[in-house]
Simulated scan of single mutants.
Amino acid sequence: MDALSTIISTKDIIMPRPSIESVGPTWHVPGISFLPRVPPFYTLERTRVTVNAEDGSPPEVAQQISSLLQVESLDATFYNDQATAIVRCPNSLAFVIQMYQADVDHSGGGEDAASGRSSGFIVEVQKKGGDSLRYHKYARTILRTAASGIASENIAETPVRLRQPPRATVLATDDRAKIERDVVYTLERATSLFQKDRLDANILGMESLVLLSGIQSSGNDRATCTSQYILGGPGFKILRTILKKCLWPKWDAAEDFGGEDTDMFEKGQWESMKERALVVLGNALSLLAEGNVFDMKEWIADDGVSLDQVLVEEIKAAELNPENSYQALRSLNSLISFGNAQAMSYTLMELNMPAIVSGAQRVGRLRHALLDEEAARLLAKLENVTPK
């Protein structure tokens, strides 16, 4: 094999392009003899583990890893004929899980050495982008699961996955005033990032809103204050405008920001903005849902499309993006808890919501546990509601 063929072979194994029939929601890997061998001149990542044949087979390990990813709500696409899984996590973290045949040890003799068969296999995790600290936490848990069959530690939940935040505490007047000043200052800085004509600055602004609205990153009281400003507070209408532009499906990012020459890279960046906008909306609504009234009129686009319709469209696309569907369900569950709960429930029933949510729940049971839980919550709320 020449050098060029080696490079192509290596690339195909790391980021495969197999037939559609081999792609599925669960990982079905054949026996060791069908696994690819490590390509020549390819250096394995340090985040790997070698599993002996007596400790487990590739199908068993693949099933254990697939179950772990579903429980931790990490969306994965499995390429079964190449023993590869591509995992995409919130906040643009992505990594690849690959199985290889282990090298045959000829020094000890025996049947495997004589026949050239491998008596074990390698599970490698390779980072493709995103937060390195979070990646290593995921990789350690996956490799320990592959080696032992049991996840020795749960993957720590991130702020975006906190689904039932505690209620805001009552603060002294001085503390509340200081927190409000801090939040206003930080929101002003985020607003200045949105006003720049650079996509990286816009994404940093949205990341700021994700952190500000998350309890684990900002604390309960600051997150609550931030949510009040985002959803309807005075002076920050531009934030609601940006969120609507990111969420509404008919908005043309090329026309409003990039001109007609918007390329695929920029479209990908705006998809990242949309994912973060859904997180911000879910965080804010879940914090303020109890006992508050949400003004839906401010969240209706010029073409008449309302927020609940946008969220329903995201839930319909659960097969394509379970994480976005989960965040949309978070928001809908919170909207029903506001003061206009009955009217919202009737609206959702008219949109045939039980059937849509049931479809998302089926996806969640296979690929995304949090999506499954949020879908079950919404179905329970709609169970006793009948259309007008």
Results as ranks from 00 to 15, higher is better:
M1D: 08
D2T: 07
D2C: 06
A3I: 07
K11F: 13
I14S: 09
I14Q: 04
R17W: 13
E21C: 13
E21M: 09
F34C: 12
P36G: 15
P39L: 14
L44I: 08
V51S: 00
N52A: 06
D55N: 00
E60D: 04
A62S: 07
A62Q: 02
S66C: 07
S66M: 04
D75T: 03
A76M: 01
Y79P: 01
A83M: 13
A83L: 13
C89G: 08
C89Q: 15
F95P: 07
I97F: 12
Q101L: 14
Q101G: 11
E111R: 14
R117S: 14
F121I: 02
I122R: 13
V123A: 00
E124M: 14
Q126V: 14
D131K: 04
Y138K: 02
R144G: 08
A146W: 02
N154M: 04
I155N: 04
P159A: 11
L162T: 01
V170T: 15
A172C: 06
A177Q: 15
K178L: 14
Y185W: 15
R189G: 10
R198Y: 12
A201P: 06
N202Q: 14
I203S: 07
E207A: 06
S208N: 05
V210F: 12
V210G: 11
S213P: 10
S218E: 00
G219S: 03
P234K: 01
K237S: 05
T241H: 07
I242F: 10
L243W: 00
L243H: 01
A254H: 05
A254S: 05
D263K: 02
S272M: 09
K274Q: 00
V279S: 02
L285T: 01
L287W: 01
E290N: 02
E290Q: 01
F294H: 01
E298W: 10
I300E: 15
G304M: 09
L307K: 00
I315C: 15
N324S: 10
L329P: 04
L329Y: 01
L332M: 15
L335H: 09
F338T: 13
G339F: 12
G339T: 10
Q342P: 02
Q342V: 05
L348Y: 03
M349I: 15
N352W: 12
M353A: 05
V357Q: 09
A360W: 08
R362Y: 08
R367V: 14
D372F: 11
A380L: 14
